[in-house]
Amino acid sequence: MSQTGQMKEYKVSAIKNGTVIDHIPAGSAFKVAELLDLSHTKGTISVATNLKSRMLRKKGIIKIGNKELTENETNRVALFAPLATINIIEDYAVKEKRKVSLPTELHHLVKCVNPNCITNKEDVLTCFRVVRKDPLELRCHYCERVMGQDDLRLL
């Protein structure tokens, strides 16, 4: 096995059981951690960023011990890391590899950028339709404002 291969295996398999999220854009690793509410997870969490990557030049990786991401959580990752790969680890081996895929609607996840949107004035759960995936564009179900990646704020 080459040196690179060993490194790769080490990064992906260093946890016994859990999830490794790979190919996160370097600037988004902490946003993804926030999105998944990892600060309240009991297992071991490692967040690495600015790692060298052939695909992204610089990337982030998150390793979450003893937690298998649900389909819904997997898809949420796509908001900040559309090219991410999710590796489900079992007994140090990759049991499953998933590509993230953004759902067509996002419920109660992100905040509307429009300060005069009813969702920012009253207790209304937000809902967005994905208008475009690349570059990301979401349309608020209520005020119809379209927002891009830079406007994204988690609730």
Binding site: N114, C117, I118, E122, V124, H141, Y142, C143, E144
Partner: peptide, 9 residues
């Protein structure tokens, strides 16, 4: 209503 999205609510 003066707020955007109010009609949908």
């Amino acid at each position: 209503h003066p707020t955007e999205g109010a009609a949908r609510v």
